Simulated scan of single mutants.
Amino acid sequence: MSPASILTLLLGTVAALGVFNTVVLNTHERRRDLGMLKSIGMTPRQVTVMTFTSMAPLGLLGGIAGVPLGILAHALIVPVTGHAGGIDFPASMRDVRHAGNVSAPLFCGVVLAVLGVLIPARSAGRLTIATVLHNE
């Protein structure tokens, strides 16, 4: 495995943990609301689906904001790095504005958000009304 692949894997893991932390905090803040919804008849599955659908747009927005910022950072950093190291990078490394390079991170943003919501959404769905109201 190349160093670039290891770095990419580590960055992806950090991003997934950041999403997971955000979802856990979001779910914890909405416990009272979830308890109220469950008291009027919402099923655990509906709570889980509601949590999933509230996080997917955030992942999409993160991808929409991150892709242009990543392309801009790449356009600024790669030439400076090449110049500092005395390396002339080939055009394939400098030009990253291909459809696959733009669409894949958007998809990954949504996938990371959905994967990060798995555990908190299931635990929110399993909460009983008494547990939620008792913790308040």
Rank of each mutant, 00 (worst) to 15 (best):
A16L: 15
V23D: 03
P105M: 03
L17K: 10
G116R: 04
I40A: 09
S92N: 11
A121H: 04
H83F: 12
V67G: 08
L127S: 15
L72E: 08
V19C: 09
P44I: 02
L17A: 15
V114C: 11
A75E: 11
T27H: 04
A91G: 00
R126P: 04
I71D: 02
G41E: 08
I77D: 09
A130M: 11
V111M: 13
P57S: 08
L25V: 13
V78C: 05
G62H: 00
G109C: 06
D88M: 11
P3A: 11
S5A: 13
H134F: 07
G35V: 00
A4M: 12
A104Q: 06
G70F: 03
T128H: 04
V110S: 06
V132R: 02
A73G: 14
H28M: 14
K38L: 10
E29T: 10
T128P: 04
A124Y: 09
A15S: 15
G18Q: 02
A15Q: 02
D95A: 13
R122Y: 13
N26D: 14
V49W: 13
L115A: 14
L118H: 02
F107I: 15
V24S: 08
T8R: 10
S39K: 04
V117C: 15
P68G: 02
F20K: 04
R94M: 15
G18W: 07
L10D: 10
R97Y: 14
L76F: 10
L61E: 04
I40D: 06
P79H: 05
G63Y: 01
M50D: 07
I64E: 04
R31H: 04
V24Q: 12
V47G: 01
S2F: 02
T128R: 02
V111G: 01
C108A: 13
G70Y: 08
I64K: 03
L37P: 03
V110K: 05
I129W: 02
V47R: 00
I40W: 01
I119T: 10
L7S: 14
P79A: 09
L60F: 14
V49D: 09
M1A: 12
T27P: 00
S123Q: 15
L72G: 03
G66Y: 00
M50Y: 10
M42D: 00
P44Q: 05
G41L: 09
S103N: 06
L60W: 02
V24N: 12
R31Q: 15
L34Q: 01
V117M: 13
I87E: 10
S123H: 12
E136M: 12
L34K: 03
L106W: 06
G82M: 08
V80E: 01
G109P: 09
S103A: 14
D33I: 13
M93H: 07
D95V: 14
V47A: 11
G109Q: 03
L25K: 09
T27M: 08
L127M: 15
V132L: 06
V102E: 11
T128D: 07
I40L: 15
N135C: 05
L11W: 08
